[in-house]
Design a protein around this nucleic acid. Sequence first.
DNA 1: TCCAGACTAGACCGATTGGTCTAATTCTGT
DNA 2: ACAGAATTAGACCAATCGGTCTAGTCTGGA
Lengths: 190, 190
Amino acid sequence: MRTTRQRLLEEGLALLLRHGYNDLGIQALLDATGIPKGSFYHHFRSKEDFALQVVDHYMAEVHAGLDACLGDRSRAPLERVRDFFELSREKYRREGYMGCLLGGLGQELSGVSEAFRYKIEWCFSEIAGRIAVSLEEARQCGDLPAETDVHHLAGLLLDCWEGAALRSRLRRDPAPLEAMLDFYFRAAVS
Amino acid sequence: MRTTRQRLLEEGLALLLRHGYNDLGIQALLDATGIPKGSFYHHFRSKEDFALQVVDHYMAEVHAGLDACLGDRSRAPLERVRDFFELSREKYRREGYMGCLLGGLGQELSGVSEAFRYKIEWCFSEIAGRIAVSLEEARQCGDLPAETDVHHLAGLLLDCWEGAALRSRLRRDPAPLEAMLDFYFRAAVS
DNA sequence: TCCAGACTAGACCGATTGGTCTAATTCTGT
DNA sequence: ACAGAATTAGACCAATCGGTCTAGTCTGGA
C-alpha cells in the first residue's frame, strides 16, 4: 500500500524539481495530492523537514541507479560509470529535462540555509565516493593512468555533470549532458 | 551621482546572489537600501522586471571582465580565456563564494518562468560566443587541434564552470573551480 | 467491546507577500 | 519665480504563506 507519507514524498519530489523550494507552497502540494494539511504536519515537522526527507527519497533513487550500473560486472569499470550518467540523462528526459534535484536545491538554498548546504554537499560527496570506487577499479585495470587521483576525478565528473544538467534544464535538451560525458571520458583516460 | 535605480540594482545583485529570487522580499531590499516602496515601483514595473534588470546589470560586469581579459594581446588566446575564469573565481571569493548569479537564478526559475529561462540561456550563449572567438584564435595559432569545434568547446567550458561554481558555493571553497580549469585546459589542447 | 494511538480533515492564525494609491517633495527648464 | 514632471514617501490592500489547533475517523490489540 502506497502510504500518505510516500505519496507526499513522491509528489513533493516532482514539484520541488520543477518549482524549487520557495516557490512551492504547502497548499499546492496538498491540492496536487488531495491530502489535507493535518496529515502533512502529522508526518512532517515542517516544510524544511519535508524537503530534507524528499532529498533522502531522491538519494535512495540515485543509490538504486548506482547499484544497478556500477554493480554490472559484465562491463568495464569506466563503462559502468558512464552507464550511470546515461541512465540519469534518461531520467531527466522523462521528467522534462528539469535537471538534478540536488543541483536545484543546492543553488537555491545554500546561500541561506546551512542545513541544506551541508545536506546536499554530503549527498554529492557520497555519490562521488561511489564513483571513485569504480574509477579505482579502472585504474587497477590500466584503463586509467596509474597516477590518477580517483577521488579528485570523481568529484570533477560530478561537478561538470551538474553544470551540464543546468544547461540541459535551460535548453530542455540533453545535448549538453552528452557533450560533457564525451569530453570527460576522452580526457580522463589520457 | 549614484542614482536610486543604481543602488537598487547593486544591492539587488548582492541579495539575489545570496537569497535567490523567491526568498528575497521587496521589503528586505528596501530595508537594506533605505529606499521606500514608491521609488521601487517608480523605477521597476514589478519584482520580475527588477530581477531581469539585475541580470542585465550582472551581464554588464561579465562583459567588462571579458573585455579586460580577452582583449589582452600580450597573452596567448588560451591564457586570456583562463584569465577570465580566474578573474571570476576572484570575484566569487570576494562575494563569499556565492557562485554565479546566472547559475543560481537559472536553476531556481527555469522550471517555472520562461522569461528567465530564455533570458539566462541567452546570457550563457552570449558569453560562450565571446569565449569561442578566443578559442578560434587559439586554433588558428595551433594551440588547439585544427579540427576543434570552438563553439562546442566554449559551451562545454561554460557548462562545467557553472557546475564547479555550484560545488564551490556548497563548500565555500574555490578548489572545485581550480580543479575544473586545470582539467579542462589540459584536455582541450590534446 | 472498548480504548489508545495513528491518522485525517479543514477551519483558523498572525505574518508576510507583491503590488497599488495618493500626497508630499524635489528637480528641471523657462 | 514658477509650472510641470520626476521622484519620494509610506499607508494600505487582498492574497498567500507556513504553521497550529481541535474535532473526528480509522485500526489493531486487550
